[in-house]
Structure formats: structure tokens, C-alpha cells
Design a protein around this nucleic acid. Structure first.
Lengths: 86, 86
DNA sequence: AATATATTTAACTAATTAGTTAAATATATT
DNA sequence: AATATATTTAACTAATTAGTTAAATATATT
């Protein structure tokens, strides 16, 4: 749970999730949306992958990333059920 | 939003919220639940207060802390509405 | 086989975090 | 007024983060 919230605490990472929520993308497509270097984006993606919020699949030269909405949903549900009907 | 998720990314801080969800507490009562030094707890509380997840009121010698469920709810709602009906 | 393209890894830096102990501040009690 | 109690602030340390550029790796194309 800490890792998920940690991953969500950065605007770049939330934006990556937003992009992947629209469609799967390869690393280059994701990076094209930001002003940061590719390695920086790689690291952000690693943090998201570590939190299991995204998954990746190698396709030839490319690596395609997808959002994992299930983990997001479960984490938020678990957290929220701490607090009454909140 | 970053500050809220950042605040939620630490188990000690989530535990503090859980405690405050049951009842308001002063600094000492909160600290008594942890193995950490009081100043460490003070800092965690500051991070929660900075994210506006808790508020404080001085009462004589004591400082009483309360959870701010509204901010929590609004942040999660805003975030979730990024993603379809998720 | 050589070269080009896509991506990640390595090495580094500056800033932030999460904890510690000791000192300071504010109120309450004697 | 002196002392005790509650809490925070200060100064410090070790670990982590968020970025950089340069090098390495893997696949595709000529």
C-alpha cells in the first residue's frame, strides 16, 4: 500500500497513468509527452511498475506499457475501508 | 494532491489517521501508540497537517489533533474521476 | 555484417525524508 | 517564583528521490 501511494505522489507518474488509461503505449510515446529525459521517465515507470500499477511487455524493439486498474482499485478500496463509509 | 498522496505513503502516518478517525487525540496520546521518539511523530503529524489531512487546536498545555475527512474524500474523488468509473 | 532505432543501466548530484538526541518554549502546579 | 509536564524546534545523520548525461543492450533494417 505504501508503494502505491508513494507512486501516486508524483504528478509525472499520475500523468503517465492518465495516458495509459487512454491506451497502451511504448516507452517512447510516453516520454514524448514530457519535457524530461527518457531515463527519468524510465525511472518513473519503474516506480509505477514496482507498485504494480503498470505492466510491460516487450514487442520487438519496443516495450509496451499498460495500466493495471485492478491494483489501483483494490488499494483504494482497502484504504478507504479503514474509514467508516468514507 | 501530491502532498496528500505523499502523506498517505507512510504506514506510521496512515496509522495516525486511523487513530484520529476513532477520536481526537493530543500529541502525547498519539505518540504513545508508536515506538518512535516524540519529535519523529511531530514531524509525521506536520506532514499530515501540511496535506490538510489533520487539524490542530491548542488546549491549555495540550495540542489536540483531529482528522479532516473532507480533504481525504475530496482528494480521492478528484483522483478517481481521472479514471472512467474506476 | 554494419548501422540505426528503442530502451535501459550506470554513475553522478542536489534535494528531501525519516529518524535520532538535546535544547527551547509554553502552560500548569506547588 | 520554582518546578514539572507537554510539545516543538534545532542540529545532525543515513537513506532515498528525482533529475542529468554517457554508455550499454537489444532488435530491426540495409
Amino acid at each position: 500500500m505504501s508503494r502505491v501511494f508513494r507512486a501516486l505522489s508524483d504528478p509525472t507518474r499520475r500523468q503517465i497513468l492518465k495516458l495509459l488509461n487512454e491506451k497502451d503505449m511504448n516507452a517512447g510515446e510516453i516520454a514524448a509527452h514530457f519535457n524530461m529525459s527518457r531515463p527519468a521517465i524510465t525511472k518513473h515507470r519503474d516506480i509505477l511498475r514496482n507498485a504494480e500499477l503498470v505492466s510491460s511487455e516487450k514487442k520487438g524493439q519496443y516495450v509496451i506499457y499498460s495500466i493495471n486498474l485492478t491494483v489501483l482499485q483494490e488499494t483504494l478500496n482497502n484504504f478507504i475501508s479503514f474509514f467508516g463509509k468514507e
